[in-house]
Design a protein around this nucleic acid. Structure first.
Length: 613
RNA sequence: GGAGCGGUAGCUCAAUUGGUUAGAGCGCCAGCCUGUCACGUUGGAGGUUGCGGGUUCAAGUCCCGUCCGUUCCGCCA
């Protein structure tokens, strides 16, 4: 801290070396302990606490004044640094060996009683958000915001040191045809037209590659008008990266180094120099998720070989029909409660399970000490099958095995969700400090959307198909084409994703065609990028990291709201400023905009017959 | 759009099977207290049990509706 007219030291900077010196501190009254005679004040600023003591015999006026101090008053205190009396040192404070004997007390601003305690955790989220500026005064929030600053700074420094140039791209840009819902902004000077806030600076950063910048980054605010979650806000921040003349391995190495610098800065930990890589196919097969949490096992096991010739007709028929039979062995979870069982089945049904309950085998020892395989289907298995099953899944006493038989998609989705829920029920990650980074690679390029009855881009339409899979694309085998796309995952959270892009105009046009974007639409919406690719676009690729999620995980939080200064609530509202808000007719008229929204109650009242006279 | 959980004093929570005047801790206000650090101590104030309706002799508690918060599903290239 640079001393100025207000203060000479921070409240956490007073040390025995200052004994005898006169110092001036500013801050908030953290607590006042009034002993009738002597009074102690803990003075707090953002760095910490210092105890200030007022003694009537030293300065009667100031001591009398100090009786009036209340929590959160803002004060300036000048005083002499003294060694604390023998036996009254406070080892909990960095400044606990000393105290300030006040000689001057200036109340800079009185405070009303706060609506909540700053030194205790709150459960009332509305109140926290309404008084977010007070919530942020709390030590935990202060630490989170500063941690975020540290990792952001580390990222900037790392990228700068590796030759990346920070460029700001427009916030007012164009709507995107696919993907998330856009936030729209009426364009007053182009009546009837609209900007959209960017979901990501995707096209701009690719155009910066065409511009020859070679290495670009941006700490970019992005906007998506979709429903919120603990890890999703309508506006969020990405560390957006793009580079030319690079391939997947280069991006992966770069991001591993970048994340290492961020975790070092934020948490002081050294993470592995390189992360495990698994294919999308493997991730889905084994974890039923493209962002697997590998801090625990509970792996999904394919049981095709065990049941290929099973006497249990249902499994055999499904296998013969091209389906899969898969199982999860929940070690030591035979004590599952009825309620938990119901919950798992509900979850599985919601995820698309076609039957009413998950098949299971529960292994427990009975009163006679004999291992029992409690299961609705155990009796249908032959002895060989039973043995093979036990061996394959490593089944032991107190385990419970869950089965799903059906299509590959169903099995992945259902068992993936069951896996997460069991881990949560078994509290497998409680207290864990593990940081399981991994890359998921070889994503499919396209997925069929039954809803739209068309193929859609799994990543985005600028993603490059793998060179060896281009023939599949030409042959119309769209579902088999893999992309040069990669996601980085930590403990079940997608931290970021990216791809090598298409840089040739023809391939990009072909991709649009596959996605059902007509030549007319291509001309209308993407002519700039298709044209740009004709003027010597270099091979390029990149990635974007979710800064909020990284900050959340570094801070050990479970919601990104805890690392965003002024987040939105579940309904995307800010309770502090009460935004969004109504605007008056005149403002709308200037924009040539009219709302069609009708209040439900008013509508009903209008529809109701008039009261009898 | 759907499901779960929650809403009781300023805050954090309690209140048995539906049954007395809805309690506690912290905070607040006032008094006492010269070495505390979550100071102590004495006293006091503070409640439309989110809101509306219903069942009942009786509702914080049961039922219906609604609002708010939160988590998840859908959604999020």
């Amino acid at each position: 801290m640079i001393p100025n007219a207000y203060r000479s030291l921070h409240c956490n900077a007073v040390r025995p070396e200052h004994i005898g010196q006169t110092v001036t501190l500013c801050g908030w009254v953290n607590s006042a302990r009034d002993h009738g005679g002597v009074i102690f004040i803990d003075l707090r600023d953002r760095e910490g606490l210092t105890q200030v003591v007022f003694r009537p015999e030293e300065n009667a006026d100031i001591a009398a004044q100090s009786h009036e101090l209340r929590d959160e008053d803002v004060v300036q205190i000048t005083g002499r640094v003294e060694k604390r009396l023998e036996g009254t040192e406070n080892t909990k404070l960095g400044t606990g060996a000393v105290e300030i004997v006040a000689t001057v007390l200036k109340v800079l601003n009185k405070s009303d009683v706060l609506p909540f305690h700053l030194d205790r955790e709150m459960s009332n989220e509305d109140l926290r958000m309404k008084y977010r500026y007070l919530d942020l005064r709390r030590e935990r929030m202060n630490r989170n915001i500063r941690t975020r600053h540290k990792i952001t700074t580390a990222a900037r420094n790392y990228l700068d040191a590796t030759g990346f140039i920070e460029v700001e791209t427009p916030i007012l840009s164009n709507p995107t045809p696919e993907g998330a819902r856009d936030f729209l902004v009426p364009a007053r000077l182009s009546p009837g037209k609209f900007f959209a806030l960017p979901q990501a600076p995707q096209q701009y950063k690719q155009l910066l590659m065409v511009a020859g910048l070679e290495r670009y980054f941006q700490i970019a605010r992005c906007f998506r008008d979709e429903d919120l979650r603990a890890d999703r806000q309508p506006e969020f921040t990405q560390i957006d990266i793009e580079a030319s003349f690079i391939e997947q391995n280069d991006i992966i190495a770069l991001v591993e180094g970048l994340l290492a610098s961020m975790f070092k800065a934020g948490q002081g930990v050294d993470i592995p120099a390189s992360f495990q890589r698994i294919t999308y196919q493997h991730a889905m097969d084994v974890y039923g998720s493209d962002k697997p949490d590998t801090r625990y096992g509970l792996e999904i096991v394919d049981m095709a070989d065990v049941f290929a010739n099973s006497g249990f007709k249902i499994f055999r028929t499904i296998l013969e029909g091209g389906g899969v039979v898969r199982a999860i062995n929940a070690k030591g979870f035979a004590g599952i409660t009825t309620g938990q069982m119901i919950r798992l089945n509900e979850l599985a049904i919601q995820a698309g399970m076609k039957v009413k309950q998950l098949a299971f085998i529960k292994v427990e020892r009975n009163a006679e000490g004999v291992l029992e395989y409690k299961s609705p289907l155990w009796k249908f298995f032959g002895e060989d099958e039973q043995k093979a099953l036990i061996a394959k899944l490593g089944v032991e006493e107190n385990d419970i095995v869950f089965f799903y038989a059906g299509t590959w998609d169903e099995a992945c989705n259902i068992l993936g969700k069951v896996r997460l829920e069991i881990a949560s029920m078994q509290k497998l990650t409680e207290g864990s400090t593990a940081l399981n980074f991994l890359w998921v690679v070889d994503f499919p390029l396209l997925a069929y959307s039954p809803e739209d009855q068309s193929w859609v881009a799994v990543h985005h339409p600028f993603t490059r198909p793998k060179a060896e899979d281009v023939p599949l694309l030409d042959a119309g085998e769209y579902g088999k084409v893999r992309a040069e796309a990669y996601d980085v995952v930590l403990n079940g959270y997608e931290l970021g994703g990216g791809s090598i892009r298409i840089h040739e105009s023809e391939l990009q046009a072909k991709m649009f065609s596959v996605l059902g974007v007509t030549p007319e639409e291509q001309e209308l919406k993407f002519s700039h990028i298709l044209e740009a690719f004709k003027f010597g676009a270099p091979p390029h690729g990149g990635l974007a990291l979710g800064l909020d999620r990284i900050a959340m995980l570094v801070s050990g939080e479970e919601s990104i709201r805890e690392v965003i200064a002024f987040p939105k609530n579940n309904k995307a509202c800010d309770l502090m400023t009460d935004s969004p808000t109504n605007v008056d007719f005149k403002s709308l008229r200037e924009l040539y905009v009219q709302s069609t929204w009708k209040d439900k109650k008013k509508e009903e009242a209008a529809a109701a017959p008039p009261p009898a006279a």
